[in-house]
Design a protein around this nucleic acid. Structure first.
Lengths: 347, 347
DNA sequence: CTGTTAGCGCCTTCAA
DNA sequence: TTGAAGGCGCTAACAG
């Protein structure tokens, strides 16, 4: 059943049916009524592929993340979908599993479906892929990595602010030995957090014991192992800042397993504020990345670029990058350090 | 740049280009080579909308879940995407947020994009929507709810088996007072679990204190509240089975907050085996629903129906429903009950 | 305000 | 093996 069937039954041309649907004001109320009646009766709705083809607009957006399974992403996805739906856009969501090959495939799939824009929230993507997209004049919005250019906008999370607040908080509580569990060295955004931490201490004239900066991999297991290493130190830290919440959860667990208490013996701070952070034991003090806002800003930036591009103009990057603030959420995994000596804590 | 551009440059007709891409064997090696060269040079790929239009096949599948944010779904989504991609299908994923209006909109969107099949993993959906899909001869696969019919397959999770194993486990450990925290009463699959629990105890001739069956809502908070109620009982249970892991996590927390220990004072069993279940403190004993398998079976059932339908035959439901087994994963949140009296436990 | 016509990009007969 | 032609379902001029 197609538009012609509707036209036939309503005794109008297909053009009129099309108009009734797309620009109701350009049609007499009487005919419109007749057409709508048939449409309802037939339960008709237009075929989007045909529409896309003739209009040159697919009303589809691509959203590429590295791992749906990572608790950071679902909220982002949900937020993105909410606005997309609101704006009558369809979403092509894909999770690459950190696999460059799948990433390349994802880009190809999106391009074949003629997405109007792509939000790329993965870390591992090489420039040639972005180029592939840019060549086709498809606007992009990147998270953390890459550089803005024609049609390429960027969103930058202010990790530094969050790290600063976290360190400040720990310092205020009286901690002097603060450790950091980083994310995977290959992950740019993880390195930013690490550097921010180091710089933050340096700015405050604190000389950092280099053994206090250990490497995790943004998983619970990684956090567990890293924390275990920290605990094995002759003089362990009294507070630990983790590169993400999953890591912090692993650290929490390691402390528990060592028979110590959080926050009495050791304070722990996470990063991200995933939903579950509220439900760890004790509830995790962490730095919040507002995923809702992230989704909104990403979508809007994309939309702006799409509309700009539709003016026929060559795509131009917006000035600078969109910034997302972060802030500390204080819960119960942080407290003042014990007065007693550390060696005793470990007994 | 379209297929004609390629044809022109390769000095062949568009038909030949199309053949080169879709049925290479129907073309001379020489011409094929020439065509491919141009394709590479131009970085050409076919427009899927045009393809869908002319072929009548969109190679798109719909996947509707109620909440991406619920840890149960991401793994399911990932699994589904994996196979879909493998089979060269695109996915339209949507999360309805438990909102019937969004559910209706989702169905409409999918139909407009002419999906070849839909996997519906939500609870709240009224029959008229399914009808809307069935009318269009689009195969469906339903999880837990609804009834099979022409083109409608169903996947059934064997909750009962899991519940039985869990109860058995608790009984073996020596527990006599076993409580159950249910999911939302409106959720069919939650009611199935609840009934399974009740029946299981009855089968074993255990008379259940009705105050031991309390209502949660499949959230951590709900689990916390329900467990608190249980703890307030004159004689609390020594073991609790939760309708899902989130609930169990809340229960875990409530027990902790009451100054009691899991599993020493109270044993807790979850359901689902979400990723994080492994990382609670203590790690959660829970009933696993294999999401990978679920995704695979759903996809394959859908694919079978699609292919059957392509034969021109009217869609026919497959015999019975696909079953998914469940099994207990024993970790550390369960143990033997204390010998002492409960009143003392609560001191 | 409405109808006619052309064509979006592709695949698929049908002939050659 | 290849090309010409028609049409998938729809929208967008252009007439009327």
């Amino acid at each position: 059943m197609d538009i012609r069937e509707v036209a036939r039954r309503a005794k109008v041309s297909t053009a009129t049916v099309s108009r009734t649907i797309n620009r109701p004001e350009s049609v007499t109320a009487a005919t419109a009524e007749r057409v709508w009646e048939v449409i309802r009766e037939l339960r008709y709705f237009p075929n989007r592929h045909a529409r896309s083809l003739v209009s040159g607009r697919s009303r589809i957006l691509g959203l590429i993340v590295s791992d749906v399974t990572n608790p950071f992403f679902p909220e982002l996805i949900q937020g993105f979908e909410d606005i997309a739906v609101e704006h009558n856009y369809e979403l092509l969501i894909t999770s690459t599993r950190y696999d460059p090959a799948r990433m390349a495939l994802a880009v190809k799939r999106m391009l074949e479906r003629t997405v109007e824009g792509v939000a790329i929230m993965t870390s591992e993507m090489d420039v040639s892929l972005l180029e592939e997209i840019a060549i086709r004049n498809v606007p992009m919005i990147l998270l953390d990595v890459g550089s803005p250019g024609p049609g390429i906008s960027k969103i930058v999370i202010d990790y530094e602010a969050g790290i600063n607040q976290a360190v400040e908080h720990l310092l205020d509580l009286g901690h002097a030995r603060i450790a950091f569990i980083s994310g995977p060295p290959a992950l740019e955004s993880a390195q930013i957090r690490r550097s921010a931490f180091l710089r933050c201490l340096m700015d405050r004239g604190i000389i950092e014991d280099e053994r206090f900066v250990v490497t995790g991999d943004h998983t619970v297991d990684g956090g567990f192992r890293a924390m275990s290493d920290l605990l094995a130190l002759p003089i362990p830290p009294t507070a630990v800042l983790a590169s993400n919440d999953l890591t912090a959860m692993g650290a929490l667990r390691a402390v528990r397993r060592a028979g110590l208490d959080v926050p009495r013996d050791i304070s722990i701070v996470g990063f991200d504020d995933i939903h579950l952070a509220e439900f760890t034991e004790p509830p995790l003090t962490t730095v919040r990345i507002p995923r809702e806002e992230l989704a909104h800003k990403a979508f809007n930036a994309l939309l702006r670029n799409i509309n700009a591009g539709r003016g026929g103009a060559v795509l131009v990057a917006e000035h600078g990058a969109e910034r997302i603030g972060t802030h500390l959420v204080i819960r119960s995994s942080t407290g003042s350090p014990r007065r007693k000596e550390t060696s005793e804590q470990r007994a």
